[in-house]
Deep mutational scan, measured.
Amino acid sequence: LLPSFEIGAWTEDDVYCWVQQLVRKGDSSAEMSVYASLFKENNITGKRLLLLEEEDLKDMGIVSKGHIIHFKSAIEKLTHDYIN
């Protein structure tokens, strides 16, 4: 489970856990499981996660359009939940 809904306070480890949970919950393929490490390697914290754009995801090595859409949708939901 994630430490809190205060996404802005999430550490790199918290984001890593979130990506792992996202991959487990989704209908995503096994190749998506490597993405948790990509987020950690790129020092993505909660604040940075909320700022990620499609180009950032591509720069991190996420090239599948479907996977990018999956992440963007999940990040938008997080942003919405965080604001409300």
Results as ranks from 00 to 15, higher is better:
S64V: 11
V23P: 09
S33L: 10
E55T: 09
L51Y: 08
L78D: 00
E55Q: 10
E55V: 06
G8C: 10
R48L: 04
L78Y: 04
N43E: 06
K40F: 03
H80P: 06
L52Y: 02
A36Y: 01
E6I: 03
I68N: 01
A74S: 06
G66C: 11
L51T: 14
K77E: 15
N43W: 06
D27A: 13
T79W: 08
L57E: 04
Q21C: 03
D27V: 09
N84R: 12
L52W: 00
T11F: 01
K77A: 10
F71S: 04
I7C: 03
Y82L: 05
G66I: 10
V19N: 00
N84P: 13
M60F: 01
P3L: 05
Y16I: 08
S37N: 13
V63T: 13
E55H: 09
D56P: 01
L38T: 09
I68F: 01
E53M: 02
K58V: 08
T11I: 02
I83E: 15
A9N: 13
I75Y: 03
W18P: 01
H67W: 10
T11Q: 09
Q21E: 13
G8R: 11
F39L: 01
N84Y: 11
W18K: 00
T11V: 07
K77C: 06
K77T: 08
V15D: 05
Q21V: 02
N84K: 11
L78C: 00
K58M: 05
A36M: 04
N43C: 10
H67R: 04
H70N: 10
L57A: 03
K58N: 08
A36G: 08
R48Y: 00
I75E: 10
I7E: 04
T11A: 02
W18F: 06
Y82G: 10
A36W: 01
K65M: 09
T79L: 08
M32D: 04
H80Y: 07
K58Y: 12
Q20G: 05
S73V: 07
P3D: 15
E6A: 06
I75F: 04
L22M: 11
K40N: 05
V23M: 08
A30L: 08
E53A: 08
A74M: 07
M60P: 03
E31L: 01
K25H: 13
G8T: 14
T11S: 11
K77G: 07
S33T: 08
S29I: 08
Y35T: 05
F71P: 00
V23H: 13
K72M: 14
L2R: 12
T45C: 07
G61C: 00
S29N: 10
A9C: 12
Q20S: 11
H70M: 13
L49F: 04
D13C: 00
V23Q: 15
L57G: 02
H70D: 09
R24D: 14
S28K: 12
D27T: 13
D14R: 01
W18L: 02
H67A: 13
D56A: 03
L22K: 04
V23F: 10
M32C: 09
D56M: 04
A9I: 04
K47T: 14
G46A: 00
V63N: 12
I44E: 02
L22T: 09
G46L: 00
T45R: 00
G66E: 15
Y16S: 07
I44L: 00
S73L: 09
K40A: 06
Y35A: 06
L57H: 01
Y16P: 00
D14L: 01
M60R: 05
G26T: 10
V15Q: 02
K72Q: 08
S4E: 13
L78M: 11
V19A: 06
L2F: 13
V23W: 07
R24C: 11
M32S: 07
L57W: 00
Y82M: 10
